[in-house]
Structure formats: structure tokens, C-alpha cells
Design a protein around this nucleic acid. Structure first.
Length: 280
DNA sequence: ATTTGGTCCTGCCGGC
DNA sequence: TGCCGGCAGGACCAAA
């Protein structure tokens, strides 16, 4: 479920809760979750320390002493929590890291879409998804000339284009709808027909929106929670996502919901109009 | 090469 | 109430 701001919130939570902790053993209850056998995964991690947690796009990079990294992707519903030993284990708990201090770091995932890959640190980029990941949506990493270049060569409509992590890392279904609404760009506008001004505005809105969402500890819809089990607050600041039929906050026109590339897509049919090409 | 569609999973909600 | 289709903040992979 989580997009970049939610993953960053989880990263910070995990850092506070388990950085520096030593692993007693690892229990894997759903084999498909990991890239090794349960036994090999456990053997590689026993006695090692969780040094720190990094992030790249929506991927958590859990740094383990001895030169290992667990690349963890939460996909739709993955969640971490920390419980004392003995707390009843839910049916959606798939991996349990038993810590020396008596606590457990648990990975829960209702739909079992999440994945963990244990690799040698430095080989993260061999994990599918990280191989081709695009720049972070920040002022320093997301360069305007890069955007102009990649937008210019794709005829794909903008909404699925923004969801493609190889173009820009970190945007998901909610923030893609939000930044397009803010930028007054129709979700079906082909990427290569955006004007330079539109690309500039979109870039600024992406960077600002992600930053603000991180500051608000992410967006909570459905049952998402961070490593503290807390809900984020940013859902109170959403302008179009989940607002089908409600008035556009700019012009009052009811927000429309359509399906694009299998994903629910919200937009204002009055503010966000498809135009012909970049010379308009 | 680029783009689309099916697939992985489970639970919930609305409609009949 | 019970059943069923549709949907869910993601991304890989095969196929067009």
C-alpha cells in the first residue's frame, strides 16, 4: 500500500525501534516472501545486528552487520511492528525477527504481496525493481532536464507514466492523482505532449507534495499503519483521491473517477483538460 | 522497444 | 442473511 512518504515514515519508526538490535533468530512462516530458503535466511542473519535502515524509492534497505542488506518492499499491505515475545501472532504475520532483547520485529502482510531479498550490501541493485529505478522525487535528484528528456520520448498517458518507478521513484496511485490535480493536467494526457511549463509545474508539485506528506507522516487509508502502529495524518490533505462525486476544491465541479491501466484514477473534468500537443 | 494485461493474495463493501 | 463481483496506496512478467 505505502508510497514513498509512508515507507519513509516506516523507515524512521524502525530506526527508532530496532536499529542497533541483535538478531537471535528469524522465523519465516511464508516461504514465498523471501528469496532464500527459510533455513538459509535464518542462518545468514542469526547473531547479526540491524545496523541501520535506509530507503530507496519505496524499498527499505535494512542494513545488517557483516555486509548484508535485506531489501524489503511492502507492496500493497506490508507492515512492520514490534511486539514483546509471547504476544499472540496474527495469521498475517509472515516473518518474525526474534531479537536478543526479548522483542520481536514482525512483518505482517494480508495479501502476501510484499517481498524480502537478502543480498550482499552493494548488490542491492541486482534486485528486480531497483535495477531500473528512477531518481528520488527531490529537488536535488529530480532534474528538470531529465524530466524533459524522458517525458519527450514516451507516448504513454501521464498517470501510468508517473506510476512507473523507472521514470520517477516513489509515486503511487494516491500521490499521482494528487500531483496531476495540482498541476491541472489530465491523467490521460500523453507524456510527450506536456508543455515545458507543465513539466516544470508538475516537477515542483511532485517534490513539494512528497515532502509535505513525509512531514505529515504519510497518508492513511484502509488499514495502513507505520512501525509504531500509528496512522498518518496526510489523508486530511488529499484534494482529489477518494473524492469521487465531491466538488473540486478549485472550481466546484464534481470529481470524476475512471479506470486507467487498472488503477482507480480521480480528476476534475473541468480543471484538468486533455490538450492537443506541447505547442498549445 | 514500448506498452498493455494478467497475475500474485486476502478481506471488505455494496448490490441483489 | 448469503453470495458474488468488484475493488484495494504495487510491480513483475509474458505477450502483443
Amino acid at each position: 500500500m505505502p508510497e514513498l512518504p509512508e515507507v519513509e515514515t516506516v523507515r524512521r519508526g524502525l530506526t527508532d525501534l530496532v536499529a542497533g538490535c541483535r538478531i537471535k533468530s528469524v522465523e519465516v512462516r511464508y516461504q514465498k516472501m523471501i528469496n532464500l530458503s527459510a533455513d538459509d535466511f535464518n542462518k545468514a542473519l542469526v547473531g547479526r545486528t540491524i545496523d541501520k535502515i535506509d530507503r530507496r524509492g519505496k524499498y527499505l534497505l535494512i542494513r545488517i552487520s557483516g555486509g548484508l542488506t535485506i531489501v524489503s518492499h511492502l507492496r500493497m499491505e506490508g507492515k512492520y511492528d514490534v511486539e514483546p515475545e509471547g504476544t499472540p501472532v496474527g495469521k498475517h504475520t509472515h516473518v518474525i525477527f526474534h531479537l536478543m532483547d526479548g522483542r520481536q520485529l514482525r512483518y505482517n502482510d494480508t495479501r502476501k504481496f510484499g517481498r524480502m531479498n537478502l543480498v550482499d550490501t552493494g548488490n542491492e541493485m541486482t534486485v528486480a525493481g531497483l535495477k531500473t529505478i528512477g531518481p528520488e522525487p527531490t529537488e536535488s535528484d529530480l532534474k528538470l532536464d531529465y524530466m524533459v528528456k524522458i517525458f519527450g520520448k514516451s507516448r504513454k498517458v501521464i498517470k501510468p507514466f508517473l506510476l512507473d518507478q523507472s521514470n520517477i521513484a516513489g509515486l503511487g496511485n494516491i500521490y499521482a492523482d494528487e500531483v496531476l490535480w495540482m498541476s491541472k493536467i489530465h491523467p490521460e494526457q500523453p507524456a510527450n505532449t506536456l508543455s515545458l511549463d507543465e513539466i516544470k509545474i508538475l516537477r515542483k508539485n511532485i517534490i513539494n507534495e512528497i515532502q509535505k506528506a513525509i512531514a505529515g507522516h504519510g497518508t492513511t487509508v484502509h488499514s495502513y499503519s507505520n512501525a509504531y502502529g500509528e496512522a498518518g495524518s496526510f489523508q486530511n490533505q488529499l484534494s482529489v483521491y477518494g473524492r469521487e462525486g465531491q466538488p473540486c476544491l478549485r472550481c466546484g465541479t464534481p470529481i470524476v473517477k475512471i479506470k486507467l491501466a487498472q488503477r482507480g484514477t480521480h480528476f476534475c473534468p473541468a480543471c484538468q483538460i486533455v490538450h492537443g500537443d506541447k505547442d498549445d
